[in-house]
Amino acid sequence: MDITLIFDFFPKLISYLHITLLILVAAVAIGLVIGVVIALIRIYKVPVLNRLAFIYISFMRGTPILIQLFLIYFGLPALLTLVHIDASRANPLLFVAITYGLSCGASFAEIIRGAINGVEKGQAEAAYSIGMNEKQMMVRVILPQALVIAFPNFANSVIGSLKDTSLAFTIGVMDMVGRGNTLIATSLHALEIYLTLSMIYYGVVICLEKGFSLSEKKLQRFEGSLSAEK
């Protein structure tokens, strides 16, 4: 093993970091939309949809993300040919974003649902008592507080997703791991390359954690955690 090779590989690999981050951002964005919608469907027990939402969440929880990735990668184009759309040449990044988005959506939905239920009941009553309708109550009073309650779990989930993106290469996405694999094929220095990759992932996770904990403090200022005046 040649540890100095890490200095060689580091710039080569980190130049693909933006692909990893792109997948993550897309997944979180899709996941947030799905998560809020599904959480509301489940809270209001919307007939039929509630049942479907339950199955969706339990399926995403009960199957490995790698299998989900392949299901989407092979399944979605197959479905689309039924309506005469040819998706066989679509950018694999698209399938990755959809898969991770769906996966994030399932975990966010449960996190958000728990958080909405965790908001004090008196908050909704106060909203109604000043004449708000149900939607105003939800959007202006409950959701903002629920998102703060959800934040720590949300942050954990995002970090988990970041690590999950390392599987994207399996359907041919050229991210850091994809690039790493091609380097391994040409240089035969697998250990050094994986070491480098682990350092990059670790570094990113540390940064994310730092960022999350700062935003958490900011978000929770009204919980008194930062209240200097108290």
């Binding site: 008196g122 908050q123 009553e125 106060a126 109604y128 008592s129 004449g131 309708n133 009204f222």
Partner: peptide
């Protein structure tokens, strides 16, 4: 809703909106 707009309530546990000043 119309009825509630004509009333307001003060709660035992205050129930202020926690996320608002």
């Amino acid at each position: 809703l119309t009825l509630r707009k004509k009333t307001a309530m003060v709660f035992q546990q205050y129930n202020l909106f926690r996320h608002k000043t």
